[in-house]
């Protein structure tokens, strides 16, 4: 919308620092990817374009920053699909279980029109691409989860999005949303006894201290959009837009390498901390539940339907 003319926009041709915010700490894969983005941006534009990075939610939580980007008081951000699903149901496409099996698939999917088209449903922002965090697994304590029956009666911490809640309910668990800051103690005191999480958070937030049993489910990927204020984007020259897109592509490549490496090193770290890693003994009953979810949400929303079809094509 109209609110994009900030204090340092006007000087076209002069130096332009793009303010970009995100939630993660500086040692996180997002931040590292942004540093790469910044580096590429500077070298490709001869220093005219660069990033001004605000990590650690210094400008507010996701909802905050997202609305700031929409309003133009912040230029860019990394925003999870979960947050964007509050603005457009179509983003639930990323929560469809068992459609993308690993990082290779996810990055391929992210580059498709079906994935990038999801951004069209949101006002005020332009989506330039996706970053990912690790694959989703489940962490528990005591006895390992190997079978769908192990979920019966478990209370599992989830991100409270209908598609995710639906999936876990159909699996037989009790999905319980717990805000992240309370998760460690909630897990420790058994408010929840299973958590749906990626390895980066398991190591970074020390959830391994509580849960020593990891089941590598790979049931979902955790996608986040790199978005920019729409009016600001239109304000850039074609050449500048091209530079930004190319620089982002390089950083997405970096993000991918980094994620694949971290998935391995995190798994190793988890084992070194005394954690046990298990695989599902029988994936079929999960796939059956997943099919039901695909049908339900694909049936509600065409964008989700085409997304699922494309993902399945990639996963072949």
């Amino acid at each position: 919308n109209e609110q994009s003319s900030g204090n340092n926009h006007s000087e076209k041709g002069g130096e332009r620092k793009i303010k970009i915010g995100h939630l993660a700490p500086e040692n996180n894969v997002w931040h590292q990817s942004l540093l790469k983005f910044d580096e590429e941006l500077k070298s490709r534009s001869n220093g005219r374009l660069s990033l001004d990075i605000y990590p650690n939610a210094t400008l507010g939580n996701e909802a905050d920053m997202f609305q700031q980007v929409q309003a133009g008081s912040l230029d860019m951000m990394i925003v999870t699909a979960a947050e964007m699903a509050n603005y457009s149901d179509s983003f639930s496409a990323w929560f469809m279980p068992f459609i993308l099996k690993d990082h290779e698939d996810s990055y391929k999917m992210a580059a498709t029109d079906e994935a990038l088209g999801l951004f069209d449903n949101i006002n005020g922002v332009e989506g330039l691409g996706y970053y990912f965090a690790g694959m989703r697994h489940v962490l528990t304590k005591g006895n390992p989860i190997t079978d769908i029956d192990d979920f019966k009666g478990a209370s599992i911490r989830v991100t409270p999005s209908p598609a995710i809640v639906d999936f876990w309910e159909k699996v037989g668990a009790g999905p319980t949303p717990v805000p992240l800051p309370e998760l460690y103690s909630a897990f420790q005191t058994n408010v929840v006894n299973v958590i749906d999480i990626d390895l980066d958070a398991t190591i970074g937030n020390a959830y391994y201290e509580v849960g020593d049993q990891l089941t590598t489910m790979n049931h979902m990927v955790w996608a986040s959009g790199v978005v920019i204020n729409e009016a600001l984007w239109a304000d850039f020259s074609e050449e500048e837009q091209k530079i930004i897109k190319e620089a982002l592509q390089v950083s997405i490549g970096f993000n991918k390498e980094n994620n694949i490496e971290r998935e391995e090193s995190n798994l190793k770290a988890f084992k070194e901390q005394g954690g046990k890693v298990t695989e599902l003994s029988n994936i079929k009953p999960f796939m059956k539940v997943a099919e039901e979810i695909h049908k339900k949400y694909g049936g509600q929303d065409d964008s989700i339907q085409t997304f699922i079809e494309k993902a399945k094509e990639i996963a072949e």
Binding site: N1, Q67, Q70, N86, I122, N123, G124, P160, S161, P177
Partner: peptide
């Protein structure tokens, strides 16, 4: 318009 279309997560 941004907020008009937005809904809560759960």
């Amino acid at each position: 318009t941004a907020l008009i279309n937005a809904t809560t997560a759960a």
